[in-house]
Design a binder for these strands. Structure first.
Length: 237
DNA sequence: CGCCAGGGCCTCA
DNA sequence: TGAGGCCATGGC
């Protein structure tokens, strides 16, 4: 479906390059959008962020990531060593902190058995299965890790993507994860840089424009969106 | 104030 | 296998 390429072009023109995934530069204090992780420590930070941002605003996650850096905990061994209850206190701002502390420890245990630099020997399908077997890593988190931390060409589907494409009439309401992902995989050239930027643009679009209550007046896709007419007359959705 | 964020697990039909 | 409850802080 050529529409998907056109939508990417329109979003890119409207919002500009996003530079995902945001990572903390070596020796730096804050996160920067500079094209993703360049070393294994930054790759680990991406994985941690992917877990912490589950159903949580990135702003709340940033604070937790900063605390982990301050406490010198942003590495596999430290996360493995620290008791879950203490870890939970440090990531408090990201919400669901007890659950997420367990998840981070499960992630660290997994990486202890399969260090990041050894993961390159597995193909993407194998890696995905391995990640999905880790407590706290579901389809979206696994694919975020594959794409942004491990540089694999796999498209990330999230709630924004589902909402945007349902409104555009390009996917059924309540379509499941696999259906949406197949649509992107079958319709786009399989390029990591495209997938990274596209997902980031969808998040940007979903966050500020195609919100639960959409701001169709500010939408760069309004021209081709069937929902634009309803939004002018109907109160919600 | 209430709503909702860059989901996933567990339980129960 | 799919719907529903649960996890929780912080910004608006």
């Amino acid at each position: 479906m050529r529409a998907l390429s056109t939508i990417f072009d329109v979003l890119l023109a409207a919002y500009g390059k996003q530079g995902w995934w945001p990572v903390t530069p070596p020796g730096g204090t804050g996160l920067e959008y500079s094209g993703g992780p360049k070393n294994d420590l930054q790759r680990f930070e991406v994985m941690v962020g992917a877990v912490l941002t589950q159903n949580t605003s990135w702003k709340n996650v940033e604070k937790a990531l900063a605390v982990l850096h301050q406490r010198k905990l942003m590495d596999v061994d430290s996360i493995r060593r620290i008791p879950a209850a203490k870890l939970a206190a440090h990531i408090r701002s990201s919400g669901y902190y007890n659950e997420k502390a367990k998840k981070l420890k499960a992630l660290a245990d997994f990486l202890h058995g399969a260090p990041i630099d050894t993961l390159r020997t597995f193909n993407t399908a194998e890696l995905r299965r391995m990640l999905l077997s880790v407590h706290g890593i579901g389809p979206e988190t696994a694919d975020s890790i594959l794409l942004y931390a491990l540089d694999r060409p796999i498209f990330v589907i999230d709630a924004y993507t589902k909402r945007i494409f349902a409104r555009l009439g390009l996917a059924p309401q309540g379509a499941d994860y696999q259906l949406l992902q197949d649509l992107f995989h079958d319709s786009l050239p399989r390029r990591r840089s495209l997938f990274k930027e596209y997902h980031a643009l969808l998040v940007q679009h979903g966050k500020d424009v195609c919100k639960r209550r959409p701001v169709c007046g500010a939408c760069p896709l309004a021209r081709t969106c069937p929902k634009i007419l309803e939004s002018l007359t109907a109160p919600a959705d």
